[in-house]
C-alpha cells in the first residue's frame, strides 16, 4: 500500500508510485493504521519527489508527463483540492480513479470529464467551485461596533477558509468572521484562526446591525413585474437558500402569487 496525505501533490505522487509499483494508493489517517492492509508492505508517497517519479515512469512506459508542471497539471491540482473539499464520502476513491486516468491517458480526459469516473470527479469539483462563486455573492456581512464583519454562511462543502481568503482581498483592513455550527472561523490580514463560539462576545455572535430593511427596499425597487420569471430566479438562487437570505421571503411571496 502507498500512503499519502490528503493534498493534491501527495495524492498525485501516490498515483505515480502506484503505476510504478502496482501497489494501491491510500490516504494516511489514524483508523487506517489498524485496517486489513496494516500487515502489507507500505510506501510513503512523500518520500519521493515528483520529478523523480515522473522520470522513472517515463522510462518505464515511454509516456510524456511534462503536463504535470504545466497548466493541465495545475488545473488538475485545483480539481483535486475541490474534490477533497466536497462533502461526498467517497471522494478519495474518485480522485484516485481520475488521477490514474490522467496518468494513463493524458490530463484532458480527467479535466473534461470524458469517462464515467472522471465525469463524477469533474462534477464534484464544479459543485465546490460553484458554491464558492455563488456564496461570494450571497454571503452578507453584519458590521459590529468594532468594525468586524460577521456572517453566518450556509455551506454544504468545506469552503469556509477558501471563501474567507477571497473576501479578505475585498476587505483587506477588516477582521472577518464566519459563524459556523462547530465554531467561528476568523480571518485577519490573511491569517486564519478558529475559536469556540462560547469564547466570542455577544456583539459578535448577534450583531445589532439592522441593514436588511434598506436592502429589501432596494431589492424590491429593482424588480420588473412584467418580466416575472420565478423559475429562472430559482435556478440561480436555489430554494435551499430562500430561508437563509433576506430576499428569500420576497421570492417566496412572488412564487406563491
Amino acid at each position: 500500500m502507498i500512503r499519502c496525505d490528503a493534498t493534491p501533490a501527495s495524492m498525485l505522487k501516490a498515483v505515480l508510485l502506484s503505476e510504478l509499483t502496482g501497489l494501491l494508493p491510500e490516504i494516511s489517517q489514524a483508523e487506517a493504521e489498524a485496517n486489513l492492509f496494516a500487515a502489507c508492505d507500505q510506501l510513503s508517497a512523500d518520500d519521493y519527489s515528483l520529478e523523480q517519479l515522473t522520470r522513472q515512469l517515463a522510462e518505464k512506459t515511454g509516456g510524456d508527463y511534462r503536463w504535470i508542471d504545466q497548466y493541465p497539471g495545475r488545473r488538475l491540482a485545483v480539481m483535486v483540492l475541490f474534490n477533497l473539499r466536497n462533502s461526498a464520502r467517497d471522494s478519495k476513491r474518485v480522485i484516485f480513479a481520475a488521477l490514474t486516468e490522467a496518468v494513463r491517458n493524458g490530463p484532458a480526459s480527467s479535466i473534461c470529464g470524458r469517462s464515467r469516473a472522471s465525469a463524477v470527479f469533474r462534477r464534484r469539483s464544479r459543485e465546490v467551485g460553484n458554491e464558492i462563486h455563488r456564496l461570494l455573492g450571497l454571503i452578507r456581512f453584519q458590521e459590529t461596533a468594532d468594525g468586524d464583519l460577521v456572517a453566518k454562511p450556509q455551506l454544504v462543502h468545506q469552503t469556509a477558509d477558501l471563501l474567507l481568503r477571497k473576501f479578505q482581498l475585498r476587505y483587506p483592513n477588516r477582521r472577518l468572521l464566519f459563524i459556523l455550527p462547530q465554531g467561528a472561523l476568523c480571518c485577519q490580514q490573511g491569517q486564519l484562526s478558529f475559536c469556540a463560539l462560547q469564547d466570542l462576545p455577544a456583539t459578535v455572535l448577534n450583531p445589532t446591525d439592522d441593514f436588511a430593511n434598506l436592502w429589501e427596499t432596494y431589492y424590491r425597487s429593482q424588480y420588473i413585474e412584467a418580466r416575472k420569471n420565478i423559475r429562472l430566479a430559482s435556478r440561480f438562487i436555489p430554494k435551499k437558500y430562500w430561508d437563509w437570505l433576506p430576499e428569500g421571503k420576497i421570492l417566496k411571496q412572488e412564487a406563491d402569487k
Binding site: 420588473i224 420569471n229 429562472l232 430566479a233 440561480f236 421570492l251 412572488e254
Partner: peptide, 16 residues
C-alpha cells in the same frame, strides 16, 4: 459576481 436575483431572474450585481 451576482449578489442576488430579483423575481424576474435578473442578476443584482451592482448598486444601480
Amino acid at each position: 459576481v451576482c449578489h442576488s436575483f430579483t423575481p424576474d431572474g435578473r442578476c443584482v450585481s451592482l448598486f444601480k
